[in-house]
Design a protein around this nucleic acid. Structure first.
Length: 486
DNA sequence: TAGGATTGCAA
DNA sequence: TATTGCAATCCTA
């Protein structure tokens, strides 16, 4: 039994899609009792709490303690006290996250400065050229002004409309870029200024004196029970262009001349699908250590020699089928004819027949129960699963079939973090867990500990779902910086 | 000054 | 006509 408890976490497990689960909101909801607000006690934070009248401060504080305890008692009464998700996942995870936030991440300050200069130069060069081509100065960051210049002033052909206005996003500009240099330049300009303003500028604000970068891991935000990260968001550091990769070069070890260890789950969602559906073809592919995308490609193209282009399509099909994608969207996504994408999706289900049965059963159960359940028994109610409107119904079905897989993978990495941290502590290791990016963990390796980490942590992570037909798989490596892990 | 809209980054 | 996040910027109210 955990010796600590958190009413907010407990509520989040039940209702992850409700954003406001703080104490005062829960007090109103559960006890119809309005708590004294912090704003009213401190006059909207104008008064420091230590200067608040002692009697007022006492009552305010007493209320916090009293309501928290009442809420605890109510939740304990409502719940099975052996609740696995609360006691074995979220509460222990809270302790791990606390440590990660204390550890922080080392950043190579000079490297970031280098990129900063490079980007500034590129941006001002592009800016000048764009102004020349447009024959006027304007704010390239303003979609409205870009639209004015491109379609009014320069009268470029074809534009696409979205919701309320005419879109000038990357897709639109990309179409124009073949013919018009200015569109290409705006695409590049946006790319560089995005990197600069979102990922480089925080260097001065958010690095401490030791060049450690602080982030917050939020445990009660995401509607899917995943973690999220803020100030800065370390879970969306760019990973797809050459210049973006140089940003990852700045993520280094705090131990001079030592390395970081990255470990990420490989194809975790397809593996979970194999385990949950018990499809023989999927399972045997993983058992025999086959390349799953290659295997799917063989099903999709039985008469062909599989080259990288067939494998690429198969990879997309594997990926998107899990999300319950329509053939229209798949064809658009990977640029193939609609008819082909329909064939591929059908062939996928013919090749892995129990996947179809598994997904159909989820939908059937959901229609009866109104909720879907994950491997670790989290429940989520799905609105619209019995809706007569076909569009709403099929969106609900997509959600119902996709979510158990995504949620289970979120729990798997949470369990991996807990077990890994406990391994580190039990063995008195001084290496540090420093980042989690949904299916990847990053460690700062304390000198001479790399052998034991490299041997033990992948094993821990691969054995999170014990006694299943197949094991999970991780890829890992030891690197000078985060870019090398790519 | 707050907040919606647009854009774009990750998994 | 996937999902869930965070955040910068512009621009209106």
């Amino acid at each position: 039994m955990a010796r600590f408890y958190d009413t907010m976490l407990a509520e989040y497990i039940k209702n992850p899609w409700i954003r406001w689960i703080g104490l005062d909101k829960l007090s109103t909801k559960e006890f119809n009792y309005m708590m004294i607000s912090y704003d009213s006690v401190t006059d909207k934070s104008k008064i420091n709490f230590k200067d608040v009248d002692l009697k007022v401060a006492s009552i305010y504080s007493w209320e916090d303690v009293y309501i928290t305890n009442k809420l605890y008692e109510k939740q304990i009464g409502d719940w099975d006290s052996s609740n696995f998700v609360l006691n074995n996942i979220e509460l222990p995870l809270m302790q791990v996250l606390k440590k990660m936030e204390i550890n922080w991440v080392k950043i190579h300050r000079d490297k970031l400065k280098e990129i900063w200069i490079l980007l500034e130069n590129e941006i001002s060069r592009l800016e000048k050229n764009i102004y020349v081509l447009a024959d006027t100065n304007f704010n390239i960051n303003s979609p409205k002004q870009v639209w004015d210049i491109l379609f009014e002033k320069l009268a470029l052909p074809k534009w696409k409309k979205t919701k309320t206005w005419y879109s000038v996003n990357a897709d639109v500009l990309w179409d124009l870029a073949h013919e018009f240099e200015i569109a290409q330049m705006i695409v590049d300009y946006r790319h560089y200024s995005k990197l600069l303003s979102t990922y480089i500028n925080w260097l001065s604000d958010l690095l401490d004196n030791d060049d450690l970068l602080h982030t917050n891991y939020n445990q009660t935000i995401a509607a899917t029970w995943r973690l999220s990260s803020t100030n800065p968001n370390l879970q969306n550091i760019p990973n797809s262009s050459w210049i973006a990769w140089t940003i990852r070069e700045a993520f280094i070890s705090r131990f001079e001349n030592w390395n970081i260890l990255t470990i990420d789950y490989s194809q975790v969602e397809v593996r979970i699908l194999a385990i949950l559906s018990e499809d023989e073809n999927l399972l045997s592919a993983f058992k025999n250590k086959e390349d799953i995308h290659h295997k799917t490609a063989q099903f999709l193209f039985p008469d062909k020699v599989i080259t990288s282009s067939e494998r690429k399509i198969a990879k997309a099909v594997n990926f998107w089928v899990i999300y319950g994608i329509s053939s229209f969207w798949l064809s658009k996504m990977i640029g193939i004819p609609m008819w082909d994408s329909k064939t591929y999706i059908n062939k996928f289900f013919e090749s892995y027949p129990k996947v179809r049965i598994y997904l159909d059963n989820i939908i059937k159960d959901c229609e009866t129960n109104k909720y879907v359940e994950t491997y670790f028994w989290r429940k989520r109610y799905i609105n619209g699963i019995n809706d007569l409107n076909k569009i709403i119904k099929s969106a609900a079905e997509r959600e119902a079939t996709n979510m158990p897989i995504q949620w289970t993978s979120a729990d798997i990495i949470k369990l991996a973090m807990i077990e890994t941290q406990s391994f580190i502590e039990k063995n008195n290791l001084k290496s540090l867990m420093i980042m989690q990016v949904h299916d990847e963990l990053v460690f700062d390796i304390f000198p001479w500990e790399e052998k034991i980490l490299e041997k033990e942590i992948p094993t821990i992570m691969e054995n999170i779902l014990k006694d299943k037909a197949i094991k999970l798989k991780v890829d890992f490596g030891i690197w000078k910086n985060w870019r090398e892990a790519k």
